[in-house]
């Protein structure tokens, strides 16, 4: 829609005719900003307060005096979560990249080439986006008790300082890749259907094979979509608790991801130390918040597709 000032003012006057309308509109939008940011703001200020200040001051006010202010929550939370952050990065990054690649491959093979029954296969991918994961949890546990990654990867534990519990992270990565493929495929497919069919045909006539067309045409043109998918998928994998809970089981494991540690942080403190909880929440949310602040538009695009 046009953003030209003339049409804008004209439109304004036609819609309401008075500035009151605009004032009301911006007031509502401002209140909504307040609504969406308050829980986060309140968490942030609380995380910076001493335990007494948390109970004795207003929850939305920042610490006003040196006596109220404390970074101790962050120090404690960091000690509790640092290992979890490291573990989460360890499996989330490879799982994100691999599932995005698989998604791009699959979407290419199901969209831009020519063979029958692509649509039925695609339906299976799309349906995979929507399944409730509870329906696969027990088999997943069975599967990983049968395939012993800890034994299979014994050379890794021998060569690195990582303990055999880190096999759980391999399982988590595999799990997230497998269950991330459907959404990644759907995202890439929606992008590939907008690519020019004549261009693909031109490449074919230029003598390029299916593989070469991907390598030289489709992959380079996918860069913007890779940004979207990587960001979206990273957020999803980083934020997951269910698979972590089922596969790693306990936050006492050296390989436990940050979400599991954070959920456990409340338990060990009997749920009452809100300052610590909030500090933990911010540490756990930091990577996704940073990604969101840097690439919010890509995230929004991934979400909207």
């Amino acid at each position: 829609m046009s953003t030209e000032t003339d049409t804008q003012t004209e439109k304004q006057s036609r819609f309401g005719g008075l500035d009151g309308y605009r004032i009301a509109l911006y007031t509502v939008l401002g209140l909504l900003v307040l609504f969406f940011l308050t829980p986060i703001e309140s968490g942030l200020v609380t995380s910076l307060k001493t335990a007494t200040a948390v109970t004795n001051t207003e929850p939305y006010l920042p610490p006003l005096s040196g006596a109220e202010f404390s970074l101790e929550n962050y120090a404690t939370a960091f000690d509790a979560l640092a290992n979890g952050v490291f573990n989460s990065l360890l499996f989330a990054i490879p799982a994100t990249v691999v599932s995005a690649l698989f998604g791009s491959f699959a979407a290419y093979g199901l969209t831009l080439v020519d063979w029958k029954y692509q649509v039925p296969i695609l339906v299976l991918f799309v349906a995979g986006v929507f399944i409730p994961y509870q329906a696969v949890l027990v088999p997943l546990s069975r599967l990983y008790s049968i395939i012993d990654f800890a034994a299979l990867l014994s050379f890794v534990w021998a060569l690195t300082p990582l303990s055999p519990e880190y096999a759980n992270l391999v399982e988590l990565a595999v799990t997230h890749i497998a269950y991330g493929i459907p959404i990644c495929t759907v995202l890439f497919r929606s992008y590939y259907t907008t690519m020019s069919e004549e261009m693909m045909e031109a490449a074919r006539l230029d003598g390029a094979s299916v593989r070469r067309i991907y390598r030289r045409i489709v992959f380079p043109l996918s860069t913007p979509m890779f940004a979207v998918v990587l960001i979206y998928q990273f957020t999803q994998i980083w934020n997951d608790l269910l698979f972590a809970l089922v596969i790693v089981a306990t936050s006492s494991s050296p390989a436990s991801p940050v979400t599991l540690d954070l959920a456990g942080l409340g338990v060990s403190m009997q749920g009452q130390d809100f300052g610590l909880r909030m500090a933990g929440a911010f540490i756990a949310a930091l990577p996704t918040l940073l990604v969101y602040i840097a690439f919010g538009d890509e995230f929004a695009e991934g979400v909207a597709t």
């Binding site: 020019s196 004549e198 261009m199 045909e201 031109a202 490449a203 074919r204 006539l205 230029d206 003598g207 390029a208 094979s209 045409i217 380079p220 043109l221």
Partner: peptide, 20 residues
């Protein structure tokens, strides 16, 4: 034969140039 193997070149209505 596949299009790749025919040794035929085609000019398309939309030109179909590789944009990158």
């Amino acid at each position: 034969q596949k299009a790749q193997e025919r040794d035929i070149a085609m000019v398309f209505q939309s030109y179909a140039l590789y944009p990158h």
